[in-house]
Amino acid sequence: MQAAARLCVALTAAAVTAGAGYVVVSATEGPPPEALGPEPVTVRIDAEYSRFVPDSLRVEVGTEVRFVLMNGDPINHELIIGPESVHRRHATGTHKEHRPIPGELSVGPDEQGVTSYVFDEPGTVEMACHLPLHYEDGMRGEVEVVELD
């Protein structure tokens, strides 16, 4: 009986310790990154193994961001930025390449492309590659647009 009680206490202590550890980890994750802007900024994004690196940004509302996409993969990629309607159109589109209009660009293997986008409303704006299966495979990210005092 005593042994069972000791075991129970030990297990409970282990569970509490583990839980406390998770709390510590959560607390040490840190505050969100500083928002870019409001002056125009240039951000480099690498396409590596069909992923955007980085895949998330934080900008102040009204900021113009110049995106430089560096493609290190041996396959084509694209960078599409905009609201849901834009992504819906590209997800069902058939164009293999996009001219470098604001918020859209295509890059071949080992190529670099540039496009700009003005984030004029607070919220979250998605960026993605809509080439076949690229989005489904995880080639997407988001830009958090914040309004600072």
Binding site: S50, L131, P132, M139
Partner: peptide, 8 residues
Amino acid sequence: LLSPDAPE
């Protein structure tokens, strides 16, 4: 035509 995971 390579799939997106092909490079890796």
